[in-house]
Computed example of a mutant assay.
Amino acid sequence: MFIRNCLTPLKELVLLKPKMTIREALDVFGQSHYSLPVISEDGSSFLGILSKRSILEYYESKPAQTSLEELHKDPIDHCIEKTTSNEFVDLRKGHFEDCLPIIVRYPFVPVLDGDQFVGIIKRSIVEQTLESCFGTNVKGIRILLGVHNQVGTLLGVSKIITKYNVNIISDIGFEADSNYLRRLLIKIEETPNLAKILHDLNKHGYRVLEVE
């Protein structure tokens, strides 16, 4: 559901095609773009990403005597940053976490429906989602806990906090693949009962690592 809701469809995108010249692409970049998707001439396939950086890298690979005028005549096909077969998400089966290893390498996440390129997920959308998960823009208190990875841990922590009529803003677990110890980052609303909550958490075996 995340993928479909966060998709920027093709009709809303500026798209490049491989036979365009570098000069033509730079003219498009002049409209405040720094990187853009490149699709096949028939519009069905995602070929990769063209950016000002990839153009520069291509220019640096040319003979030293190559002029800018000569460079501008080359097709962009020579300097497309090609993604691999697993560097996209599936419109129907993809999940938010599938975007993370891609967005750290590229300026957007390509989205496919089967073999058909249908749009992208922008980096800004991924950032906004992460900010929402962590409650970044909500005032509160962060408590980092060391907990055992066992059934009922989150429920136990929640019961202690809500006993004091305190709202939990967000909760994020780390070391999800651990079979023993994990860290749990809880963000709660500000409360005069913080000391009591911390005491109860420690008493029930939830080790308080940091509070801020």
Rank of each mutant, 00 (worst) to 15 (best):
K159I: 04
V138S: 11
V111Q: 01
C6A: 15
K122L: 12
D177M: 11
V28W: 07
L47M: 07
G43D: 07
L185Q: 09
G156D: 09
E81Q: 08
K122M: 03
S124T: 13
H33Y: 15
V38I: 15
D42Q: 08
L181V: 13
L47C: 01
K11F: 09
C6F: 11
A176L: 11
H148C: 05
I141W: 04
D42R: 01
D200G: 02
V211H: 05
G140H: 08
G140D: 10
I168Y: 10
E131H: 13
S61R: 15
H72C: 12
T8P: 06
L26I: 01
H33Q: 03
V104G: 04
P75Y: 10
L144I: 09
T8V: 15
N149G: 11
K82G: 01
A195E: 15
R23A: 09
L15G: 07
V109C: 00
R105E: 12
N202H: 04
F96P: 04
L130C: 04
M20A: 06
I143T: 03
V109A: 05
F2N: 05
K159P: 02
F134Y: 15
H148M: 12
K196H: 07
D177H: 10
H204E: 13
L201F: 03
F2S: 02
A195R: 14
K93R: 15
C79F: 08
I161C: 12
E81I: 09
I125N: 10
Q31N: 14
K196C: 00
I161H: 06
S178Q: 13
I120E: 00
